[in-house]
Design a protein around this nucleic acid. Structure first.
Lengths: 341, 341
DNA sequence: CTAAAAAACCGAAACGTTTCGGAAAACAGT
DNA sequence: ACTGTTTTCCGAAACGTTTCGGTTTTTTAG
């Protein structure tokens, strides 16, 4: 492994000069720079980032902390898309990405912030953590700059990016209202998630706007799980046959809901319109294809990385980024049947 | 950021002793060790891995080189599952994972092996590269230990892990044969992939075993793409109505094939049995649910990491690992209709 | 031709560890 | 009390960079 010293020796200059030449400083003669470049190439030199990071006290590395690359998260591709987006931005801006995750049964004995400090990451992106995760607190209280995904905390060193969930939910509910539905129920995610709270808010606002009552017994907790949503929908539809439309806080839950409706002999969308949230891949492959409000998860990751690096490099003022959603009407929603008119 | 030096000062010992105490060497008195530990904790010390790596000349870091975390790869979750598996093993064995990928339009100007050398990764896992990728050559010719996924190259510093594709294909084809099919076509992937070659081999072997002819015009190139497979299947079914069963070298292509069959007014599986390969998530959500031969991609990643770390730590003899497959009969295959008997 | 300014170069310290070789301290046996 | 071990500790070099401050060389101006 050739070093800067080797280059200095064969080029007949000092290591200072080699360093300065390689890094494009102006106080080195163009001729010697050329020579040094050539020697470096001849010797197949690669700089040692470890040494560089050590002395410069920054590693050009950002850590992606993901909690739960589990089976469940395989279905929505959430984690992966965030990862892809973040990775894209990170490599564009010439950083590297190191992954911190604890799926492992045998939980890693070190905390995330320890990992970050040990590896000397310049900053971290946090994804998939519940709002009450003890590790979360640790990370944001450490002085490591970080940006959170879907957790609204802002400070000097922490920012966040999320989707406009209220508006997204309103798009969904308004879509159902426009189709003539009046009795619209909701399957929400668990409430350790910020997005659940916001989507519920959007749901309620939309109903109130129309003067529809908000019926608490129509709002069930599906915990973002297909199975749980299936069960909850069964309960809902049995107890409240007047419901003709269902807004689910995630596509996966919507899929579960549709299964439940089918299990009860109902036809989606004829007897029940169902709309989801996310636009996961499965939505366009299921039968019926799922209507949903799409969020751009890839962008979520990309913007998270972008924001973080901005925070690291240029002292930017705002540390938040809110993304938009898009209503995607497919086959699982249709006009309300006016049976009783 | 507190260092070993700070600890030495407050504990009243030399930095050597601190280092040896923290690293569990035997030549330090139990009492002073306790004290040092306590001081370290009080000062909230985290070791600086950069410094450590620099002097020890190894980083406990392994690089995951993935080519194409693109849109296409979103549908099968291949990349992600490999990543998850690798990550699991890597963190279990107390390494870290840094991701090297170039989706970016603006291709990174550095090659993978440069990246690896700069970042001083101890080894690399290579996934998703085509067999003729120029970068591949570079990586395996560098002296960086690496293990390839689905590329059969073995040397002193390179190993590989793959699935038993021949046997897998045979399971698929035998399944069709057992259902009474005699005219079995195949949609293969492009032939810059090792797996295509092997799956084809399995297909041909199975037919020959039964004394069935291998008809080259029944073997089409779907390039692992849903759309391409759709088109090829259209061609196939139009020109060869005698075909009653189709073996596709990937689930995604099988999905395309089924769409094509539907477009021609055929019913799957009644008029055409289709079996895929992979067992991607979509397979169990599509209608009809796809019969397939499942491979464990997560394991592929896990074992790749495992093999690599073995190669790094204990000098192991064999550098290859072959995984098994599992036939999963779902709804897209059924008994042949004996119309002409 | 000289003084001043500009350009090109370099030595040495620093970053935070590990580790080699040896030194000091404690203990053992006579 | 004297040697010989064993236990415990430490100084200094090394890893490969960057950078501060300065020195040498070249160029420019008068």
């Amino acid at each position: 492994m050739t070093t800067i010293k080797d280059i200095a020796k064969v080029a007949g200059v000092s290591i200072t000069t080699v360093s300065r030449a390689l890094n494009g400083y102006s106080d080195v003669n163009e001729k010697t720079r050329k020579k040094i470049m050539q020697v470096a190439k001849d010797l197949n030199y690669s700089p040692n980032t470890l040494a560089r990071s050590l002395v410069m006290n920054k590693s050009k590395t950002i850590g992606l902390i993901v909690s739960g690359m589990t089976e469940a998260n395989k279905k929505d591709n959430f984690t992966f898309e965030v990862l892809s987006g973040a990775n894209d931005c990170i490599s564009e801006r010439d950083y590297d990405l190191v992954l911190f995750s604890t799926t492992t049964a045998k939980q890693r004995e070190k905390t995330y912030s320890q990992l970050c400090r040990e590896r000397r990451v310049d900053g971290a992106i946090v994804q998939g953590m519940k709002i009450d995760d003890p590790y979360l607190k640790e990370v944001i209280e450490s002085d490591i700059p970080c940006v959170l995904i879907d957790i609204p905390i802002e400070s000097d060193t922490v920012g966040y990016v999320t989707t406009d969930n209220v508006l997204g939910a309103r798009k969904a509910v308004r879509h159902l209202i426009e189709l003539g539905h009046k009795n619209i129920a909701m399957i929400n995610g668990h409430n350790q998630a910020y997005v659940s709270i916001k989507r519920l808010e959007g749901y309620e606002k939309s109903l109130q706007e129309e003067g529809f009552p908000v019926n608490q017994s129509w709002i069930l907790d599906g915990s973002f799980s297909e199975e749980k949503a299936y069960e909850q929908t069964l309960v809902l539809l049995r107890n409240h046959p007047e419901v003709t439309a269902l807004f689910c806080a995630s596509d996966l839950m919507a899929l579960g809901a549709i299964k439940a409706a089918k299990a009860l002999g109902m036809d989606v969308p004829r007897n029940l319109s169902v709309i989801g949230f996310d636009d996961i891949l499965l939505s366009s492959y299921s039968t019926p294809q799922l209507s949903t409000v799409g969020q751009n998860i890839f962008q979520l990751g990309y913007q998270a990385a972008n924001l973080l690096i901005d925070m690291l490099e240029v002292k930017t003022k705002s540390h938040v980024c809110i993304l938009d959603t898009e209503l995607i009407a497919r086959e699982s929603t249709c006009k309300a049947q006016n049976d009783q008119d």
